[in-house]
Design a protein around this nucleic acid. Sequence first.
DNA 1: ATCTCGTTTGGTAACGTTCCCAAAAATGGG
DNA 2: CCCATTTTTGGGAACGTTACCAAACGAGAT
Lengths: 350, 350
Amino acid sequence: MSTRRNKQPTIIDIAEVAGVSKSTVARALSGSPHIGEKTRERVLSAVRALGYERNHLAHSLRSGKTGLIGLVIPDIANPFWAEVARGAQDAAAASGASLLIFSSDWDPDREAHHLRALRQARVDGAIVNPVADNVDGLGRFGLPVVLIGSSAERFPELSSVGSDIAQGVALGLDHLASLGHHRPALLVGSANRLARVRFMRVVHDYCIAHDIDPATLVIEEGSYTVESGRAAMLRLLERDPKAARCVFAANDLMALGALLAVREAGLRCPDDISILGFDGIPAAAFSDPGLTTIEKPARTIGVEGMRLLTETIEGQLEHRRVLLDCALTSRGSLASTNDSPTRLMAVGSN
Amino acid sequence: MSTRRNKQPTIIDIAEVAGVSKSTVARALSGSPHIGEKTRERVLSAVRALGYERNHLAHSLRSGKTGLIGLVIPDIANPFWAEVARGAQDAAAASGASLLIFSSDWDPDREAHHLRALRQARVDGAIVNPVADNVDGLGRFGLPVVLIGSSAERFPELSSVGSDIAQGVALGLDHLASLGHHRPALLVGSANRLARVRFMRVVHDYCIAHDIDPATLVIEEGSYTVESGRAAMLRLLERDPKAARCVFAANDLMALGALLAVREAGLRCPDDISILGFDGIPAAAFSDPGLTTIEKPARTIGVEGMRLLTETIEGQLEHRRVLLDCALTSRGSLASTNDSPTRLMAVGSN
DNA sequence: ATCTCGTTTGGTAACGTTCCCAAAAATGGG
DNA sequence: CCCATTTTTGGGAACGTTACCAAACGAGAT
């Protein structure tokens, strides 16, 4: 009946040492007022002596709360999502919760698999960036959920936090227009991805509002990777070397790829071709020229997502949709159309 | 006594529906052979009908295994560690485990805090990149641990997996020597960081072995960030503009910072100054010129760490130290000393 | 001294599993 | 058709915690 060796002590061990019942130990540990001052001291010193740490599993099983939060994002190795994860993690740590992080790789099957794992782990809730079109999987998740990122608006009945793409795109297109680029070529993502549809719709709306015929825009398709951006830019240059003076990419990786392609083609950015990115990944600061980009508030998305989820779990919040503003980060990849038109000739003849 | 509404069903609910005892349900679920074929069918169809999912908490409490693995790294938003995390996560997912990821921010207190949280969550084991000098915290962790990264050798009694820095540094210095750079300037990390000490020792050993006096090496200190690398490079150029023809940075971020500083100073890489990085972060591919770097097998470190940990947990493995080879990724930031000496003049007079 | 009231304590039943042991049912041989 | 043996099933107890209820205790009022 003595303290078991080689195992973590339980409240029963404590009770034995302190000479009280386990109920009393539980009271001392939970800071209940219904306990004498000297007994509390005795229990707490026994706790210190044995190095007791409460078994979170048993606590969770009894109380129904695990202190675990699920985070399902496309790819933790992707700098944007890593930043979101960091924000969520900081917020979670601040409220004493732990994060279970999963990468879905934009695969609905994997997402469903991870959601199931989260439910079985009895997480208190989850923050999810839902992939394309599995409406049902999320619907029957049955736990508090906060959606993050672009595709959140597909589920208007769930709380969500994302960056305001419409505001970001408008910010970018306004800025490009102010430099004289009224009809930038677009580097968009794969046709089957929701983000592409949304990006296109926002651009379309902007064009309508600004008396530009959307049909006249030059569009190339990539898959959100550097390599696909490079290939798309090469296709663009091949299609019409002179037409593309300005490119607006739907994410920074493709923009950086475009930058590589421009250099590869013997052209210069921004002198010959201006490039505007979207996301604000750290790597955009290290390119030459530095990539001017519309920066999504990645870390804040994680923090706010966690905050919304906490409130949802505590039942204080019925439903909310948070849209965070994007910001323009100017580096060197944009030039005005009035700048050195001769330069284009010089390099073109090179 | 009927199925509770609005709650996840338990094996008791299943037992009721299938008209058997909970023991029988447990047997059907665990695939035990001691059960009749038709009863198993009946139970399983009840499981499907109710949408039962086993409560992982109760299972863990009873069995003593949680299927949770802790991962403590300096910063999940750091591309190198994000890549490690991805590798660990893939390996974990393959064996049905879930990862609890924590960022220590190189702070021993945070690390200790996270290790305590992991112990309370009753994780089956942990993969840790230990920060500087808290030998004790890890020693009394009391759970299976695998160390990853550079500082692992501080704890020779624990299994660990890391990249072979000595091999990587030798690879880099050999390569630089083959280009005529026999005495590269060194951009190292903060003096209080273990990684810096190790890097320096390896360089020292290499120099002794190659008849180079280590004392003649020019050394600048940064703190593993782009900005600190930029500042260090600027100091280096100020110290002696002509001396530094080649810089070997202890990590890629500082190398990229150095690249920015070189450009800022009106010089060119690699024509005027060669830069070699260390790590192999994705961003190194997007700079101009692309950063030649010694690439650590980040993702493999995560995968192998997870593999070692699994074996340790299962008791198959007593102790092992795995060292993975680094690889040289050549991009464009290195030039031979024989290349265009006139170029230096031309730019220098610019 | 007795009674009441408030504080402090212990006992016990959950939470949902798994595991062991014994009871029941099915099988086979005489 | 009965007994021995195997297969299948049910009834607990346990994992470590929390929560509720009742018992014990002291103190103050009568």
